[in-house]
Write a protein that binds this DNA or RNA. Structure first.
Length: 877
RNA sequence: GGGAGCAUAGCUCAGUUGGUUUAGAGCAUCUGCCUUACAAGCAGAGGGUCCGCGGUUCGAACCCGUGUGCUCCCACCA
């Protein structure tokens, strides 16, 4: 078969993915084997594949494919998240484009459109994962709003409510006065605006003294319930415990102290309006201040304001300033630049506002989840995230789980007209509970809570609910697959998601949901900026796959991403991946080319060094085993990019640059049968090791090498055998000698075609005996002997303690060579002196470990030998 | 403001209990090669005040302190 000049990934990738699907290799059912479960962090249904997904899913695929090849029952569960905010926003936007306002249609109609949208676009991202080669069990595709999943979410709500862990409480939220809805923090856009800072003075009660505060929102004065100063602020110490009078409305408010107030901003005195500012609210809670809500839901002032009732807050700002001024309360007005929140949807200035929300009480749930991580029942990779996790868990705040949205799991609470409510799975149940208090109620009186649950309130059940852990408790699948092995996710959602999954797992499965968490970094562009749509610096992943191939993309992103570090994405890494593919392809072509030239003889039958490079096969066997062991260790430590680097250099340097060159027969010479067979076996084994990282090309090459009894992706890997250290050392010596001789040839401009004679001066000829054949071919030496050269026109090279004389026809210019030797001599002398200094330090000899001292002695002896060697060489010149 | 982390070659990073390292790799750069697997290649080379300062130690890129610069998370300043 004719193999193409370069590797062409397109058709090959599509072919193998379909083949794997047809064979059902990615599908898992429980059996006697050990399970290895990974659940995908469910991408949003609104999502399209970006670099972050690429990184994250490549890592998962590597872990899953490797486990599968180690004989484990690997199961990687796909699925999507309903992503309530993001999806609802998309659907609203789509409706708006069709001229439909959300407010003009009812909840059911809206949800109809939302489901339609989900069915149409929600699966795109999963299809894209197939292009990357992800070995997911597609029969298990889950969605956080599937019927059974939905019911489990509701049941968890009911259960936690029953346990007293869910309650209703007031909270400051971001209020959009135009849309008359609450906004999530993510929907608030902070912009810098030019404001005024108004200095307003308040009279101290029962005194002629005044205290001046600074504010950008003078209209909120009407809701003031305290003035706060720093307890250490000398200017105000005499006012502690006194009262001030709110201008215009003459309310008496206390002057309180709190460390929160900084002395160097404004006047060091802060007016406190608990109903209209996040921080003031917290201060109010802490100091038990009265909360006066002076604003209606449309941004106009309410009756509680006493003045300007019914007028918009910004109108009031314009009017209240002159009024304050006319009564002598304005001290000065300064220009001021500050950050103001705007609604992402309506661009209205967001107003902090108090509202009644549902909460999960977190302390109790957090305790076992904190323990699981601190005691390493769950291991974080890298471990540095343990600190972050601990800090958050120890200072955990209650979780606000209600969202003023329609797309999501609707809160199972029903209200009677008098405000009484019941939490129940059905309206009927709620009715029966509420009628026991008030028998006059009818079903029609009951109204279900309009709000939805936070998206994370469903995704925290993901690791067991994909196996119906709650909807069908104790079923065989959840018993087999749960807990999962490794979660791969971004550190930015450690609190939103990872911590809460651990809590839910402990609470409902009595077991942590995973054993390992691998935190990926954030994918950034070359300049270190986060990839985002607005910057336009996020490349189109599918276009990259088309251009470089999926294997190259996977290689490129993995080679530059140590765990937990951000990765700076650079297309040159993909190019490196593509080149690596090509290197593999060409190595295949070379080895396949040997097929027609196999000699019936093996390397042992012949004494001809040219066709019996048994040293090469023995050496590479050891080299391969060593690399295999290294990869095993690195993978256990989740050092994936280092494992890939190890394989890259094994294949490119040791296999292609050294081994194949050593084992390669001369032009039209036969190939020893055992060399051929071993080369094929090594190649196969390397393809197996590389398969999890680059699944497509490895399968293709594996199949082309020879007729296989199975496909590579389910071929079991064998454990590394011990490597022979002597032969490894001999290989390193050979490499070193070849490099040194090539360097000398290069520097003396001896052309590759020019032959040389080589004399080796050594006290120990034995290590060289095995490698003469290879050596002569690699440095183009016509003869090699162990005699001292007597020709004066020679180049002398020192490697370790041995000397190499290159005899050539070419006239040599020794000046450059001399300079080189002098430089090396100086280095060696300096080195010797530094070692000598160490060894003559008595305290070093006394305190250091004996083996360290011994090592220094050896370094010393070696350096001495090299110095003598170099000095002699210089004399010869 | 609270917390976490980072600083090693032009770039991206290794350097695992302080001693096989007067520091390694890949990419980039330079030099020479169209050598019959591969120019998406081959052979070779150059390149470092391990952020500054102080300390601990026989010995520090590594441990401690401190300064500087950068990044991220949370809360966002009246």
């Amino acid at each position: 078969m004719e193999l193409s000049k370069n590797y062409l990934p397109g058709d090959i990738e599509a072919k193998w993915y379909q083949h794997w699907l047809d064979k059902g290799y990615f599908n898992s059912t429980p059996d006697h084997r050990e399970s290895f479960t990974v659940v995908i962090p469910p991408p949003n249904v609104t999502g399209v594949l970006h670099m972050g997904h690429c990184l994250n899913n490549t890592i998962q695929d590597i872990l899953v494919r490797r486990a599968r090849m180690q004989g484990k029952n690997a199961c990687w569960v796909p699925g999507t998240d309903h992503a309530s905010i993001a999806t609802e926003a998309k659907v609203v936007q789509m409706l708006r484009e069709r001229g439909i306002a959300k407010s003009s249609i009812g909840r059911d109609e809206f949800l109809g459109y939302a489901w339609e949208w989900k069915e149409k676009y929600g699966g795109i991202i999963l299809q894209q994962l197939k292009k990357m080669g992800c070995s997911l069990d597609w029969n298990r595709t889950s969605f956080t709003m599937d019927d059974a999943y939905y019911k489990s979410v509701i049941n968890v709500f009911i259960d936690l409510h029953k346990k007293g862990l869910i309650y209703r409480g007031k909270r400051m939220i971001n209020w959009d006065v135009k849309a008359k809805t609450a906004l999530s923090d993510e929907e608030v856009i902070y912009k810098e605006v030019q404001s005024k800072l108004y200095y307003v003075r308040y009279q101290i009660a029962d005194s002629d003294e005044y205290i001046t505060i600074a504010t950008v929102r003078p209209e909120t004065i009407l809701g003031d319930t305290a003035i706060c100063v720093n307890p250490d602020d000398e200017r105000y110490k005499h006012l502690h415990g006194k009262y001030a009078i709110v201008p215009l409305i003459n309310r008496r408010i206390p002057i309180i102290t709190d460390e929160y107030v900084t002395t160097d901003f404004g006047t060091g005195a802060l007016k406190v309006t608990p109903a209209h500012d996040m921080n003031d609210y917290q201060l109010g809670q802490k100091h038990q201040l009265e909360v006066i809500d002076t604003m209606n839901d449309d941004g106009t002032l309410s009756e509680a304001a006493q003045l300007y009732i019914g007028e918009d807050r910004f109108e009031v700002r314009k009017k209240i300033v002159p009024e304050l001024d006319s009564k002598g309360h304005i001290v000065k007005i300064e220009d001021y630049t500050n950050q103001v929140g705007f609604s992402e949807r309506t661009d209205a200035v967001v107003e902090p506002r108090l509202s009644l929300q549902w909460w999960v009480s977190m302390k109790e749930l957090a305790a076992p989840a904190l323990k699981a991580v601190m005691e390493e029942e769950i291991q974080f990779h890298p471990a540095k995230f343990k600190n972050l996790y601990r800090h958050w868990m120890e200072n955990i705040k209650d979780w606000c789980i209600s969202r003023q949205l329609w797309w999501g799991h609707r809160i199972p609470a029903w209200y009677a007209p008098d405000g009484q409510y019941a939490v129940a799975a059905t309206k009927e149940e709620a009715f029966s509970r509420l009628t026991s208090h008030d028998s006059r109620l009818t079903m029609d009186d009951l109204r279900q809570d309009d709000d939805c649950l936070d998206t994370w309130f469903s995704s925290w059940l993901w690791p067991f609910e994909v196996f119906k852990g709650l909807s069908d408790p104790g079923n065989a699948e959840v018993k087999y697959y749960y807990p999962t092995n490794t979660l791969v996710t971004a550190p930015e959602i450690i609190f939103f998601w990872v911590a809460r999954m651990i809590m839910a797992g402990e609470e409902y499965m009595q077991q942590t949901p995973f054993k390992n968490v691998y935190f990926t970094g954030i994918v950034r562009d070359k300049q270190g900026r986060k990839m985002s749509k607005s910057l336009g610096n996020s490349p189109d992943l599918l276009a990259l796959i088309d251009q470089y191939g999926a294997d190259a993309v996977r290689f490129g992103i993995m080679i530059s991403s140590p765990a937990g570090n951000d990765i700076l994405f650079d297309e040159s890494a993909l190019e490196q991946g593509r080149n690596f593919n090509n290197k593999l392809w060409n190595a295949l072509k070379l080895v396949k080319g040997w097929e027609s030239r196999i000699s019936p003889l093996t390397s042992h039958d012949s004494h001809d060094a040219q066709i019996s490079p048994s040293f090469a096969t023995d050496w590479f066997h050891a080299r391969l085993q060593k690399a295999k062991a290294e990869v095993e260790t690195l993978m256990q430590q989740f050092r994936l990019s280092e494992a890939l680097k190890t394989l890259y250099s094994l294949i490119w340097d040791d296999f292609c640059s050294w081994y194949l060159e050593w084992a390669k027969p001369g032009f039209e010479q036969p190939v020893a049968a055992d060399v051929y067979a071993k080369t094929i076996a090594y190649f196969e084994e390397m393809m197996q090791l590389l398969h999890p990282f680059m699944p497509f090309i490895t399968e293709e090459i594996y199949q082309l090498l020879r007729t296989q009894e199975t496909d590579i992706c389910i071929k079991q890997q064998t454990a590394a055998q011990p490597a022979d250290n002597n032969i490894l050392a001999a290989g390193e010596l050979l490499k070193q000698v070849i490099s040194a001789l090539r360097d000398a040839r290069n520097k003396n401009q001896i052309k590759p075609k020019d032959q040389i004679k080589l004399h080796i001066e050594t006290v120990n000829e034995a290590p060289y005996k095995n490698i003469i054949g290879i050596l002569s071919k690699q440095v183009n030496a016509v003869t090699i002997d162990f005699d001292t050269a007597n020709n004066t026109n020679t180049i002398v090279i020192a490697v370790e303690k041995d000397k190499f004389f290159i005899e050539t026809e070419k006239q040599l210019d020794t000046t450059a060579l001399k300079a080189e030797l002098l430089k090396d001599l100086e280095y060696q002398k300096n080195f010797r002196d530094s070692v000598l200094k160490k060894l003559s330090n008595e305290r070093f000899v006394q305190n250091a470990k004996p083996e360290v001292v011994e090592l220094e002695r050896k370094k010393m002896a070696d350096a001495e030998a090299r110095i003598t060697n170099l000095e002699e060489s210089l004399k010869n010149l």
